[in-house]
């Protein structure tokens, strides 16, 4: 589903699993390979759209893991379109729960189960991150919905690893989790994936645990592991973005202005 200006809200292909190179959704399949174990892999997606993240993870999981997932989408029309055209499962499946018409922040209040992975992929007006999903209070709340050693992953549209929006969001996330946050550039795209864990840190791209030894994600992880493609964000003393003070809109403007200043 194309929202115009080359901004795709959801992507579908006949088979589940990884999408072609350059699609940031593929990065959300990595945490399962960092923590492989038999059994259910419980995933919460905030900003489900038409279920692209579900289909990518479903087809890219290690063979002995099973996806159990809940998705929150604020726009019920998108869910309806997804069910009609993009193979989004309908109501009645306990392992594919869709919560439609609810904001991600509000939905977190009602989540009772703990998840191995929480994915935040919510935008408004194509490129604006909603402020209520970009504050330290939100990340503290999201951390509480994770199981032991669970991971949170965030999609950020950013012009490089020094982008002002990325820096503010990653530092805020680090403050909310009280853990360092890993930012990884998604190859062939203007997207960066942020990863944070509840009780530890995600694997270091320079370490031996980052690139899986086998499976569909070896090439992607190898590309993410090269020098200059990742950055760690330390826990700051104060979060740059809070519910009371959230300059995310001015940061987004600064991000675009900074990008237009670059040149040969």
């Amino acid at each position: 589903m194309n929202e115009s200006l080359g901004s795709f809200q959801s992507v579908w292909q006949p088979a589940t699993g990884l999408l072609p190179e350059g699609q940031y959704y593929n990065a959300f399949a990595l945490p399962a390979w960092w923590q492989p174990r038999a059994g259910p892999w419980r995933v919460l997606v905030l900003g489900l759209g038409a279920g692209t993240v579900w289909r990518v993870i479903e087809g890219a999981l290690p063979s002995d893991m099973e996806l159990e997932t809940t998705g929150v989408e604020i726009d019920p029309d998108v869910v309806e379109l997804g069910r009609r055209w993009l193979d989004l499962p309908g109501p009645g499946r306990a392992d594919r729960v869709v919560v439609a018409g609810v904001d991600g922040r509000a939905a977190l209040h009602h989540v009772s189960r703990r998840f191995d992975l929480v994915v935040l992929d919510a935008y408004q007006n194509q490129m604006e991150i909603p402020p209520q999903l970009a504050s330290v209070e939100f990340f503290e709340q999201a951390a509480q919905s994770l199981a032991t050693d669970g991971t949170m992953a965030v999609n950020v549209g950013a012009f490089g690893l020094e982008d002002p929006v990325l820096e503010a969001l990653a530092s805020t996330m680090a403050r909310g989790f009280r853990q360092r946050v890993l930012a990884v550039r998604v190859p062939f795209s203007r997207n960066v994936a942020l990863f944070a864990r509840l009780d530890s840190e995600p694997p270091d791209p320079r370490g031996s645990d980052f690139v899986p030894s086998s499976g569909p994600l070896v090439r992607l992880a190898s590309a993410m592991a090269i020098d200059g493609s990742s950055r760690w964000f330390d826990v700051p003393d104060r979060a740059p973005l809070t519910d009371d003070r959230n300059p995310i809109e001015s940061l987004q403007r600064a991000s675009v202005e900074r990008a237009t200043r670059s040149g040969p």
Binding site: G160, P187, I226, P264
Partner: peptide, 17 residues
């Protein structure tokens, strides 16, 4: 060549410059 194939277009441009 390596950075281009790894999808690091900005990195490739930095090498060229």
């Amino acid at each position: 060549y390596t950075r281009l194939h790894a999808g690091d277009l900005d990195g490739a441009l930095r090498v060229a410059r």
